[in-house]
């Protein structure tokens, strides 16, 4: 339960939308600091729902959940905001702000926590150079290609050096070459200490990188290791 061990803890967590049936039931999960997981499951299995609870956009409808060692049921709004600042998110549909330039989109997480503009300028320029988008710094997302938008979305997710990185099908819209390149970025970040969860459909990705999978099926979570044919199922422990 200590903060330095588990980044996320879920106990008997369930989530439903409005009065509908539970999308996920009795989820039990401990994400260790520095771990790397894929999150798999058919479309509609609840990958986005699970991630959105992790990045604190949705509250579980039942069960208890701790993020960075803080039970979110006993954490006030401002402190929840502070927890969110330690999490980077790449959304399935990017969710960039169309009226803002690439620069301002990437700067968003830094501005939200009130960082000095000079420091912001330095960091954002550096990162946009690194993802090779320095030429498009002042362009708005609608003038950019899908791959470029995606790199902006990822730059925005990592600009604040998050301790937890959650990516929802980040390689969904790009070719294999770029997908592999992105994966290498995530692996690099993981080596620097970031805990990573990536929701994906891609068999190739799962096979190329032998990280454990969190598999969603029939509203529940199964932990699977992609050891060739032996699909090992566990209820607990990664």
């Amino acid at each position: 339960m200590a903060e330095n061990n588990n980044i996320i803890e879920m106990q008997n967590v369930g989530i439903r939308y409005d009065q509908g049936p539970e999308v996920l039931s009795d989820i039990k999960l401990s994400l260790k600091k520095g771990s790397f997981h894929f999150l798999t499951g058919k479309s509609g299995a609840g990958k986005t729902s699970l991630l959105s609870m992790m990045y604190l956009a949705q509250k579980p409808s039942r069960g208890s959940m701790s993020v960075f060692g803080k039970n979110i049921n006993f954490t006030n709004r401002d402190n929840l905001a502070s927890l969110r600042r330690r999490i980077g998110v790449v959304f399935q549909d990017f969710r960039l702000l169309d009226h803002l330039s690439a620069f301002d989109n990437v700067a968003l997480p830094l501005r939200v926590c009130g960082m000095d503009e000079r420091e912001i300028r330095k960091r954002v320029t550096e990162l946009l150079n690194w993802v090779e988008l320095d030429a498009h710094m002042q362009d708005t997302p609608d003038t950019l290609s899908g791959g470029e938008k995606q790199r902006i979305a990822i730059a925005r997710a990592v600009i604040n050096r998050p301790e937890l990185l959650l990516a929802d099908e980040p390689t969904g819209n790009v070719d294999n070459f770029i997908a592999t390149k992105l994966m290498k970025l995530f692996v690099e970040l993981n080596k620097l200490g970031t805990t990573v969860v990536i929701a994906t459909h891609s068999e190739k990705l799962i096979n190329d990188f032998s990280y454990p999978c969190l598999h969603l099926q029939n509203r529940s979570l199964h932990i699977i290791r992609p050891n060739g044919y032996s699909m090992l199922r566990e209820q607990n422990n990664v």
Partner: peptide
């Protein structure tokens, strides 16, 4: 709302 939700997830406090 869509913008505010994103700001919220990035860790913006209500006062922001």
């Amino acid at each position: 709302r869509h913008i505010i939700e994103i700001l919220h997830i990035m860790g913006a406090k209500d006062t922001y």
